[in-house]
Design a protein around this nucleic acid. Structure first.
Lengths: 156, 156
DNA sequence: GAAGATTGATTCGTCAATCTTT
DNA sequence: AAAGATTGACGAATCAATCTTC
């Protein structure tokens, strides 16, 4: 009768694969963390985590703007998803569209002054949430996590 | 004029907070990883990562079943979300509903024989994807990651 | 004709209201 | 009245098709 794996053999139950288990835990931890932080950001700043990421990336870019395609790539969205996201953020006044001087196919999403004000306030609240959630982690832990993430990205 | 943080003081730009940066990288890495693995599972097994997680959890539970509420909690879904997810999986024949003998408010989601067959095949493919994506990670790296995730969960 | 962006139809999830059972 | 689950209305993303510009 099959039970534990014999030495040198693969386990007989594919569902018991440790990689699958680790990945499942990663999904679980991440989703929960994202839900909690998103909820807190929403309550404190009336802003979704996704909008926050957009404003953060725009604010760090030269001119406070990014081409729609580049934004979609950075956020791992489809171009259609980026269009609708930016539509919503224009409605709230955080972002505006700008034409590209050299290629009329391209449109930029650019952060507005109001957007800068809002993302700055949101960052304070978000940082406080993170500080609480990550209280148990030493700087070394965070460095280790950072390094593991770096090595994860290029894959796939 | 404010520029770099003076020694012993917090940086003056809240957007430069290292916790926010690390969290942003976590979001980015995770979303990308999830998208890639989800795509591959979909192509190889015509199954979403979410359905896979459901079947995995059901298959590991005694009787191959979980109460709807417990399933929702484990997957970090609302009860409504769990209802609709199970509806879809019933339509594909992977899952069935069962009444609870002792409390007629409760319904169980239970994996079917077809569901066991499908999750087993999906696990093989998913494990192969993970093996490729995580090829650069030693067993020690994975243990470190596992431990960090463990410490992340209870927070929030 | 390929690249960049937008739009229509659809999918998957949430939220609030509801229904049944305890 | 509280707990468990489902349903209607909606929000946010996808995919495939389209439109404009290169």
């Amino acid at each position: 009768m099959p039970s534990d794996a014999a030495p040198g053999e693969a386990p007989d139950d594919p569902l018991a694969n440790p990689l699958i288990t680790t990945f499942g835990r990663l999904v679980e931890s991440f989703r929960h963390l994202e839900a909690v932080l998103g909820r807190e950001l929403q309550e404190s700043s009336e802003m979704s985590l996704t909008s926050f990421e957009v404003l953060l990336r725009l604010s760090r870019s030269p001119g406070g703007e990014l081409a729609m395609g580049e934004l979609a790539r950075q956020l791992d969205l489809t171009s259609g998803g980026a269009t609708r996201l930016v539509d919503r953020m224009i409605a709230t006044g955080e972002v505006e569209r700008r034409p590209c001087a050299t290629d009329r196919r391209v449109l930029y999403a650019a952060i507005t002054a109001a957007g800068r004000t809002r993302v700055s306030a949101a960052a304070d609240s978000h940082a406080a949430s993170l500080q609480r959630v990550l209280a148990g982690f030493s700087p070394e832990d965070l460095a280790t996590l950072d390094e593991l993430l770096d090595r994860l990205r290029p894959m796939a």
